[in-house]
Amino acid sequence: MDGQYFEFGLADALGSVRAEIAALKEREAHLRAAILASRSCETGREFEVFIRTGTSRRINRAALPDAVLTDRRFWTETSTTTVITRPRNAPPSAREDRRHVSHLAQPERKEEDFTVIEDI
């Protein structure tokens, strides 16, 4: 690490990056909406944009019989590690209150595990 994050600490650096990402996502949403409203392909100097419509399939849990929902043979569990950022003066969200948040625990990693990083 080049040391640029240590002036105010890693937490502030990560929070700042996430704020920048949020602003970029908002800008992207506005640009996306404009492109969808134009309903045409767009070509620039370095990029081209076109619209593609796709379909996805998901299992409707409400339609599954209780025998499937309660039988562990039909489910796979994986462990995730989440890094949460929030302003220091913000109270914990209801989502955080519902689960134990460990600042130090490092669970045993399995090949199918993945890491989630979220901003509250």
Rank of each mutant, 00 (worst) to 15 (best):
K110L: 07
T55S: 15
A94P: 03
C41N: 09
S102Y: 13
I59Y: 00
E42K: 12
R109D: 10
A105D: 04
T80A: 03
T82P: 04
R58A: 01
E46T: 02
T78V: 13
R39G: 12
N89W: 14
R57E: 03
D71W: 07
A90G: 11
V68P: 09
F47H: 07
R57M: 01
P87A: 10
H100V: 14
R45K: 15
P91R: 15
W75K: 03
R61V: 00
F74N: 01
T76W: 05
I84N: 07
V68Q: 07
L104A: 14
E96A: 06
E111L: 08
T85P: 01
R61C: 01
D66C: 09
S56V: 03
I51W: 12
R57W: 00
P87W: 01
E46M: 05
K110F: 07
D97C: 13
H100R: 10
F74R: 02
R98K: 11
A63H: 01
R95G: 00
P92F: 08
E77D: 13
E46Q: 07
R39P: 02
P91S: 14
P65N: 15
R98H: 06
R88T: 11
G44K: 06
S40Y: 04
R88E: 15
W75M: 05
T70D: 08
T76I: 07
Q106F: 07
D71N: 12
F74Y: 12
A105E: 07
T80Y: 03
V101P: 04
R73A: 06
T43K: 03
P107D: 06
F74V: 00
R98E: 01
P92E: 05
I51Y: 13
E96G: 00
T70A: 09
C41R: 10
V68T: 13
T55D: 11
D66W: 11
D71G: 02
R39C: 12
K110N: 10
R109V: 07
H100A: 14
V83C: 08
R58V: 00
P87M: 05
T78I: 09
